[in-house]
Simulated scan of single mutants.
Amino acid sequence: MAIRLFAPGRRWSVAVAGAAVIGMALAGCGGATKSSTDSGGSGGAAAQGTANPNGQVKKGLKIAFLPKQTNNTYFTTLDSGGKKAVEAGGGVFKEVGTSSATDTAGQVSYVNTLTQQGMNAIVLSAQDPNALCTSLKQAMSAKVSVVTYDSDTNPDCRQAFINQASSESIGRSEVQLLGKELNYTGDIAVLSAAQTATNQNTWIGFMQQELKDPKYAKMKLVKVVYGNDDAQMSFQQTQGLLQSDPNLKGIIAPTTVGIKAAAQYLDGSQYKGKVQLTGLGDPNDMRQYVKDGTVTAFELWDEVKLGELAGYTAAALASGIITGAKGETFTAGDLGKYTVGDKGEVILGDPTVFNAQNIDQYNF
């Protein structure tokens, strides 16, 4: 699950930065769309047709959003932005999905059903980078445009990936925030979402790269645990981390569910003020913990705008304005013009750091 990073009134620009593949199929970014003019794999999946940058969004497009988890407030907010974008273009919005963030079979079933229903586009946050590929390729063969958002699948299984921010900037900045708070000394741990979450794994990969910098010589990542974006499990994992390692000084939770659960545990424990916590969270969820000193700073992006960008991208693909090839441009409503980057990636913007000085400026 992902975060939100924005400042009021700020215009977003797209960084055409290639996402690195870390660990498994990239813990959360990158995609490759091959167009008829691009044999180098710098797009997303096999492009459908030729792009018409001067074309108009077709009316009546049926666009379905398939979040990683339907009862997750993060995705509820994201998809509200998607609905806004789809309906602004005269399309029909639909949201379906499972209530579990680890029900990959359920996601596959929904993709198959949406394809059979004749959707013009499917926008999904992948629970697993590999398991959905067969069904997504079948969807694209049936002329259904496929966009991933928040958490990617394999690049050849979709046409575009809407990334909330550069995966590298997210992963490295989490370590940078915690390093400053710990004076670059002490054991740290990561409380992630699902073990198969592509975005989480990518960010963790960049965290590990950042920790190789000599200034972190006295900081050590001792453990990565998974709360599966479940509040109770994340709470228990936080408790287990602190009980198993009395020397633990900091926790990074790059998931909105995880950081809130970890903050709740720390807030009522002997570790409050002694163990630092950062990660990706909603300002409304984290406000009380920032104000009472449990959390010093954390990050995120504008979830509504991320959903909007995904909706506008899906409409542009389904209308033939873009194919997902690198260098193509399209207009995403009031968000402005965006450029497709390496491997079909479109980036919303940079993360925003929330702290006691600015958190009351945000309401989401």
Rank of each mutant, 00 (worst) to 15 (best):
M207P: 03
G23W: 03
E303Y: 05
L211T: 00
Y226K: 02
Y271Q: 07
K143F: 07
M1G: 15
P129K: 00
L191K: 02
P283W: 14
N358K: 07
T115W: 02
T339V: 14
L182V: 11
S36E: 15
A332Q: 05
T256M: 10
D282R: 13
G344I: 03
G90A: 10
G171Y: 02
I252L: 13
K218Q: 14
L335A: 10
S100P: 04
K220W: 08
G279E: 00
G44N: 06
F354M: 13
L309C: 12
G55L: 04
A27V: 14
D213N: 15
Q200L: 12
A160H: 09
T77Y: 13
A85S: 12
L78V: 13
T148C: 03
D187Y: 01
T37H: 12
V222P: 06
M286W: 00
G205I: 11
P246Q: 10
I122D: 03
Q357K: 13
S145W: 00
V257Y: 02
A2Y: 05
V346T: 04
Q209K: 14
K180S: 12
W203M: 10
T70E: 14
T185C: 13
G89I: 04
G55P: 05
G186T: 07
N71H: 07
D103N: 08
A325Y: 00
L242R: 01
G186E: 09
L335N: 11
N363P: 13
W301Q: 14
G349T: 12
V86M: 07
R11H: 14
V346C: 08
N54Y: 11
Q243V: 12
K249N: 09
Y271G: 02
A297V: 10
I122Y: 02
T148H: 03
L191A: 02
N71L: 08
L335Y: 12
G43T: 03
L241R: 06
D152W: 09
Q361W: 13
A25N: 10
L266W: 10
G336I: 06
L191V: 04
T198M: 09
A101T: 01
V353E: 07
A25K: 09
G227S: 10
T196P: 05
L317P: 00
E174G: 14
N284H: 11
L114R: 02
L248S: 05
E303D: 15
E328R: 01
S269L: 13
L178R: 13
E299C: 12
K337G: 08
Q127W: 04
Y338A: 04
I63C: 06
K143I: 04
A139Q: 04
K274F: 03
D230E: 08
A126S: 07
A85G: 07
G97K: 00
T185F: 13
V123R: 02
R287Y: 00
G240I: 02
F65K: 11
P246Y: 07
V108C: 08
D156N: 14
A165Y: 08
M119Q: 12
I347C: 10
A194C: 09
T33K: 01
T70C: 08
F93L: 08
